[in-house]
Design a protein around this nucleic acid. Structure first.
Lengths: 233, 233
DNA sequence: CGGAATCCAATGGTCAGACCACAGCTCAGG
DNA sequence: CCTGAGCTGTGGTCTGACCATTGGATTCCG
């Protein structure tokens, strides 16, 4: 039985997507560069403008391109940017039980804290200290406390110095931040709980400042376990 | 200085994307369901078919929809959503992702192995044993060996019983598998290296079968460190 | 001459309608 | 009953047009 592999009919807009991605990844177009107009690209490729647009909107949704109406289409400067939008879109759709999200967060952030303890630069350290101080200052106002809580986790993700890890963590954290904003506000409105969170952050920060990755790991693990318990209660 | 927030001009196709996502996430359309034809949706929404298509191609690229030409547009069966395509697309664009990629893999898969040791069902165990046996049987033929190597990691990811974790791991592994296929083939062509990899897999499998999460963690960590060393050499 | 209001060309955003290729169904003809 | 031709609906692509916004060139006035 000779194996006939089915012919894959390549759609025009998919071909355009691949060509554009190639041009971007090879550096032919660098971040910030302006692409030819849709009309010009259509003519150069020998296709209709509609097909070009279908490719452009996809690449825009994936974060590779930014389109400014009346101005042009540009290669995104933020390919190394902070979050992975399509991942966020996927997460926000599928019923992602809190337990699953928290488990992945636990895995990633615990190690991120350990890496931060090993790799944090002086600048990273200052940033983390600053955020935690801000958090202490507004500990009584729940809304801002929740914000700084998020920023503290971001600062640790930055200090781990792995862009991919950083982006995944920020995407997950940001999504949880939005989804469970109400619950978190309630948590922070209880002064006792707010103090406990603050204390846990302090422990993590101290461990990182001491370059003690084991302690950082341990501190983050306990912290996230507490957070999960608080959210599911 | 009163804060003027810039007006967000909502593009038609973005509105359609959101509406479709809402309809899917609320279950109005379930996985496998057929959506109305593009022409019908355009008429119902009071927009042109081109705008509907721009929305559909984006959702298709994100993996929410599956389009079969001449047949219709369908909601993806979540069962088939083993990877996160947009994440793969983003990864394939980064310039030197190997170190970053391997570090994230190490973090995720080490814990996945530990979780697998705790959660693997009888079916999971049989699957892992089967894959490893397959791998042993073809150990001399490099091409297939590389395939089964990948499947072994997939089986562990399955056994961790966290869909989000599973999808991220499979996306990362699959991408590395494609990107470094050549290197891996070389690795496997050396019988000594192939034997070592096989041995490491065996250690991990034994640990999981013994429900020894600590040993599974340890085994996977050493395995991935060896793999990374092999790829960077 | 300098600055400001105006105009205009380029670009993305949207639309309408057309044609093609393909999948699935119907139904006549063997 | 089975087969195959033809019809219908669908996605895939193209054409050409118009609108809205942007940014710079142009023009006009002090």
């Amino acid at each position: 039985m000779p194996e006939f592999t089915p012919i894959k009919t390549r759609k025009v807009y998919e071909e355009i997507i691949d060509q554009l991605r190639e041009l971007i990844s090879t550096g032919t177009y660098s971040p910030g560069d302006k692409l030819p107009s849709e009309r010009d690209m259509a003519q150069m490729l020998g296709v209709s403008r509609a097909s070009v647009r279908e490719a452009v909107v996809v690449l825009q949704a994936m974060g590779f391109l930014v389109v400014r109406a009346g101005e042009g289409t540009f290669v995104s400067k933020s390919i190394n940017n902070e979050t992975i939008e399509p991942l966020a879109a996927i997460l926000s759709m599928e019923r992602n039980p809190l337990a699953q999200l928290m488990e992945v967060r636990r895995i990633l952030e615990v190690e991120a804290a350990a890496l931060a303890a090993e790799r944090a630069t002086e600048q990273d350290r200052l940033k983390m200290v600053e955020v935690l101080n801000d958090m202490k200052a507004v500990a009584d106002r729940s809304q801002q406390g929740v914000e700084f809580d998020l920023y503290f986790h971001f600062a640790i993700a930055d200090a781990a110095h792995n862009p991919l890890l950083r982006r995944i963590i920020k995407t997950l954290d940001n999504m949880m931040h939005q989804t469970f904003l109400v619950n978190r506000n309630e948590m922070y409105s209880d002064p006792k709980t707010a103090d406990r969170i603050l204390g846990e952050h302090q422990i993590i920060l101290d461990a990182i400042l001491n370059c003690d990755s084991a302690a950082a790991r341990e501190g983050m693990l306990k912290h996230l376990e507490h957070v999960e318990r608080g959210l599911t209660t």
